[in-house]
Design a protein around this nucleic acid. Structure first.
Lengths: 218, 218
DNA sequence: ATATAAAGTTAGACTTACCTAACAATTTTA
DNA sequence: TAAAATTGTTAGGTAAGTCTAACTTTATAT
């Protein structure tokens, strides 16, 4: 049985390394920043997780999840995304409210609960942010994804999901008129600061590079 | 903000003292037994809870909840019973499975979540064990209750709720053919060991005094 | 009414998860 | 390639919540 904290470290590592095969390793500082703790704290936990065979790690080396650790991380992710879907679909939470509560709910320990919840929700494939929900067996559909920042001028794309789940970002997304499945046309990109002019439902907005990098499109 | 542990101590105290005005105080050992920790551990926590003004307590004296502490305990109870109802009604958990998972869910911190859940469930008044669910404002209907052990021979009564929520007891209750709203006729009571002969739906069973004391009837 | 039993308290220790401060290794860059 | 910057590690400390062992107070029973 893993503690909530251990689960959060595995989830953090998965977020930093597991989703993109191009960057399969993370560093101590990087993980510390992501989890809002100090590097020394991460270092302690790395020893513990290594000893439990959940990560691969050597002193001064990079960190990666073991198959077992990855599996555990995906289980937590499954729970997180199912709970988000529940809050959004059944309890009328908004897009930007679900993440925080799901951060708590994802640690509830009950195999039966999560399978019944999945069934109750009709086996959803994506969460309210458009992210794929891992299957009960741990399979996770992971298509290569492009961000809005990579789309060339004049092209139109469809918003699939968001990378950042913070309330402030999501509220901003709504303000710009965007949502899952929105069609976005890239009108212009400033040479100077990579600001993007985009058109959504006939409305033109200017968004930053940082913003564009957090919108996944197809 | 209270920790899960602090919430559990308040809940424990409420269980031992708050439900029945006849016994408004508890002791250290009693609480320790109820929470499955050692008296020394309880003693430490009592100091903390007193300092937070959640309990009344003097060295070597009895323990009781302050109005604030009682309020907090009832909030946890409300969450516990709403989650039990959710698991039972929406996720097809059985009677004896809901308690354990609700012990975890009751600590999720989100005012909005619990009010939305209450709404989603149609503002239920009792949980799957027949216990009253406290209202959002903290009001708790508390009728004087009788147990099956107090019913005289020949009388018929109706099962309202159970006192013990453990899986083993609840499974036993089902085995005897009992459930919320069952009509129970008391056929006989042994002088020797207070064993009770009861009739439910035409079926006669013999149950112990201990069993009968955990069935609330009207 | 006093001895024994029961209940309650204190002191000291352990684990988890965190911190700061000092130091070591590695990477970057001038 | 050596100095500077970054990254990672170690040592020692704290708070929460638990324990055991020894002790004190209160309650019970003859």
């Amino acid at each position: 049985m893993l503690s909530n904290t251990e689960e959060n470290y595995l989830k953090g590592l998965f977020h930093l390394t597991g989703e993109d095969p191009a960057k399969p390793e993370a560093g101590t500082n990087e993980l510390a920043t992501h989890l809002n703790v100090k590097p020394a704290t991460v270092n302690d936990m790395l020893k513990k997780l290594k000893q439990k065979k959940l990560i691969r790690y050597e002193k001064y080396g990079k960190i990666s999840l073991s198959p077992e650790g990855r599996q555990r991380a995906i289980e937590v992710l499954r729970k997180h995304r199912l709970w988000e879907t529940f809050l959004y679909q059944k309890l009328d939470f908004t897009w930007d409210e679900v993440h925080e509560v799901a951060e708590q709910l994802e640690h509830i320990q009950s195999k039966k609960l999560i399978e019944k919840l999945d069934q109750f929700l009709g086996h959803p494939e994506v969460d309210p942010h458009g992210e794929a929900i891992p299957a009960a067996n741990g399979e996770l559909k992971t298509q290569p994804r492009k961000t809005l920042a990579e789309i060339s001028i004049g092209k139109t794309c469809k918003m699939m999901s968001v990378k950042d789940n913070t309330a402030s970002f999501l509220q901003y997304v709504v303000k710009v008129g965007l949502g899952i499945s929105s069609n976005i046309k890239v009108i212009d990109r400033q040479e100077y600061d990579a600001m993007l002019a985009i058109e959504v439902d006939g409305k033109v907005s200017n968004v930053s590079q940082k913003f564009a990098e957090n919108i996944f499109v197809a």
